[in-house]
Amino acid sequence: MNVIEVHNLCHKYNGRTIYEDLSFTVPEGSICGLLGKNGQGKTTLVNILMGFLKPTGGKCLVLGEDSHELPPAVRNRIGLLHEGHLAYEFMTIGQTERFFRGCYPDWKPAIFYDLVNKMGLSSQHKVGNMSCGQRSQVVLGVIMAQNPDLLILDDYSMGLDAGYRRLFLDVLHDFAGQGGKTIFVTSHIVQDLEKLVDTMIFIDQGKILQTGLSDFMSSFHKFSFRNGDVVNFGNDTVLSGWEQRGDHITVYSFASQTEVADHLGSLGVKFKDLQQKTMSLEDGFIGLMGKY
């Protein structure tokens, strides 16, 4: 069963096309990461999925319901983390717990306090007086205590240091381990997602590439070689991306090392010491999407 289904989604904002004919699915039990450069519409997509924006065309289904008219019973099954860890800043920790406890029938106060007490703050501490990291912990406690079936996290890593990011990953990992839980996550910290997701959706200029993490990491390659000249591969069909630092050139491709070597030869590029390098997800992201 698919928890999220997007069919032929089109969206425009101020005359600019954000998506055109975008389609993908997120199956139940998967951890799907949405990756894209700044301004590619990741948050817009989350807002459409949560019914806060009406797309100009296409259809989005979340837990089988039209995202634009999500009934309360479906929203009850979705834990949503807004970009910037939105929380009611006029509330204290205790008031936040009391407020959400009355909203969600499956609320688990122990989960909330287990996460929040790690900060060592009093329940009288006001959310508005917290650091970004502390606030993120409260928001994480809120969405976890809801015991949702689907978690949607919009750039959870924004403003968080390595410790808080690692804590998020630990909690999300445990959540996914419960079985039957689905996570849809966007983040700017690509290397964090490498430790979490099993499926990725790359979004670039309104188009997407959906792939499994292991498939991507095994089929997409990073090669390096040396060349004294300045190179420019432009929109190459074999080389998805390239970087140059001095005479050290890195190229990314779905092709094998032999095919890349042949291709470089056919382009008349002189190369020395061509070798395949270990590639991180962040390398793959840059290689596929480019830097700018």
Binding site: M50, P72, R75, I78, L80, L86, Y88, E89, C103, Y104
Partner: peptide, 18 residues
């Protein structure tokens, strides 16, 4: 005003109620 700052109203709009 607190609901509009950062569009926090979205928190309440996501609650399981109409």
């Amino acid at each position: 005003v607190p609901e509009m700052l950062g569009r926090r109203m979205r928190i309440s709009l996501h609650l399981p109620t109409g």
